[in-house]
Write a protein that binds this DNA or RNA. Structure first.
Length: 420
RNA sequence: GUGGGUGUAGCUCAGUUGGCAGAGCACUUGACUGUGGCUCAAGAUGCCGGGGGUUCAAGUCCCCUCACCCACCCCA
């Protein structure tokens, strides 16, 4: 094969493309009800935007970005995640805050592909901008929970943590760094790097020896300020009140630098190694970081591909085998021309109709109709053209009737929306 | 970057101790020239991922390489 798709990219073939349309329209409906407005941002931005927001300690920025220069020498990058672009757009276009925005956009990360991980993938993102109260966190989490339930995500569970605010975190990271320095020689190479860049990330480490050291590490819980504790308690109380099951996971810190306080991940046990369907949290400092006014915000994003993987064959985006409600079967050259005319007239009337233009006797045409999964066929031969009456055949039952054009319209318009 | 697995027909996959390249599904044609699905018959389809080596002989054994998948890591 001479031409292949680029590593880590996928062709989304008709049946999956249909499923995605179904998913998107459901998401749109739910989010509209919750007051979210759609937004779309460019596929590439200045590299610096991601560097400043996603952060220097994140894997995304350090090793996964598609970074390039354009002909004007601009330092650009393909969008690896949506939140920075959306916040930039809010700021740049002076959108009125508070505002709730959502998007579905492709994201690009040059990671090594495997199941549920692609170099181009699609995220649905949801951002609540300008709401600092824990109720916003609760509403958002409930929204996600309901959405994933509706989609039929199998083996779903929610992990929850708080990573504090600037004030309480700085004291904690200081203490944590001190602890890590004491154990410097026992740590793995990755953790030695993490220690300096973003010490909280050491909790992500899967190396057994690191984990056993970390058991004795100071707990962030003991360093949360009273405001952060209050916020976290309110969120947890809300989840309990609305019967949203969750697991508290002190190890959950998220790979992006801009989070504060609440962080969440929805996971599915069916996905294997890449089990996170949705990640998110609060990012009260990001707007300020980008040079805007201090603006609290909370949001999440879920991967469309993973959501589909985790719910295959279930939920809202099942789709029907594509079938043709009515297929015109012309017999002979004259009938072909005639059937084209008929095709346009019927379609104008709103009927989902197609025509078979290949030549062949009736036997062959019916065979083709069968292969193409036609519900009903209209046989158009010399006799039919002469009389203006066509034979309408039901491909399932084999019933046939002679119908004129007007009769045909009536039959199909009254049966609109029905499958065969 | 580090492991493991898989590459054979359009698809799913067999292929034995090295001995003519196979099956099922799908496809084409006919039986059936204005009535499909079922059945029967016939047919087409391959750089066996690529390169090199061993051998009288390689899909099969050896070396190299590429691609894809999975896992580590990280995340959606």
């Amino acid at each position: 094969m001479r031409y292949r798709r680029v590593k880590g990219t996928r062709d989304i073939l008709p049946h999956e493309a249909e499923a995605r349309r179904g998913l998107e329209s459901q998401v749109h409906e739910q989010l509209s009800k919750a007051g979210f407005l759609p937004i779309l941002t460019p596929t590439f931005e200045y590299y610096e935007l991601y560097q400043r927001s996603t952060g220097e300690s994140s894997d995304i920025v350090t090793k996964e970005m598609y970074r390039f220069q354009d002909m004007g020498g601009r330092d650009l990058a393909l969008r690896p995640e949506g939140t920075p672009s959306v916040m930039r757009a809010v700021l740049e276009n002076r959108l009125k805050i508070p505002i709730r925005l959502w998007y579905v956009m492709p994201m690009f990360r040059q990671d090594k592909p495997q199941k549920g991980r692609y170099r181009e993938h699609t995220q649905v993102g949801v951002e609540v901008i300008g709401e600092a109260e824990p109720q916003a966190d609760i509403e958002l989490i409930k929204l996600g929970f309901d959405l994933f339930t509706l989609m039929g995500i199998k083996g779903m569970f929610l992990e929850l943590n708080t990573i504090g605010c600037r004030e309480c975190r700085s004291g904690y990271t200081e203490q944590l760094t001190g602890f890590l320095k004491e154990h410097h020689d026992e740590l793995c190479a990755d953790c030695k790097v993490r220690m300096n860049r973003n010490p909280l990330r050491v909790f992500d480490c899967k190396v057994a020896s690191c984990q056993s050291i970390l058991k004795q590490a100071p707990s962030q819980r003991d360093h949360l300020c009273s405001a952060c504790i209050e916020h976290f308690d309110a969120v947890k109380a809300g989840l309990e009140r609305f019967s949203i099951p969750y697991e508290e996971n002190e190890r959950l810190v998220r790979g992006l630098d801009y989070y504060s306080r609440t962080v969440i991940e929805f996971k599915s046990s069916t996905l294997g190694a890449q089990d996170t369907v949705c990640g998110g949290g609060r990012y009260d400092y990001l707007m300020g970081e980008l040079g805007g006014p201090p603006t609290a915000a909370v949001g999440f994003a879920f991967g469309v591909e993973r959501a589909l993987l985790a719910s295959r064959g279930e939920g809202i985006f099942e789709f029907n085998q594509s079938s043709i409600p009515l297929l015109l079967l012309p017999l002979g050259d004259e009938a072909k021309v005639y059937s084209l005319e008929l095709l346009f007239k019927l379609r104008e009337a709103g009927i989902g109709v197609q025509a078979e233009f290949r030549s062949g006797n009736l036997s062959k045409q019916l065979k083709r109709a069968n292969t193409r999964n036609a519900c009903k066929v209209l046989i158009i031969g010399e006799n039919e053209i002469a009389s203006g009456k066509f034979i309408l055949r039901d491909m399932q039952t084999g019933d046939q009737q002679e119908v004129g054009f007007d009769e045909l319209l009536n039959l199909f318009c009254s049966a609109k929306g029905q499958s065969c």
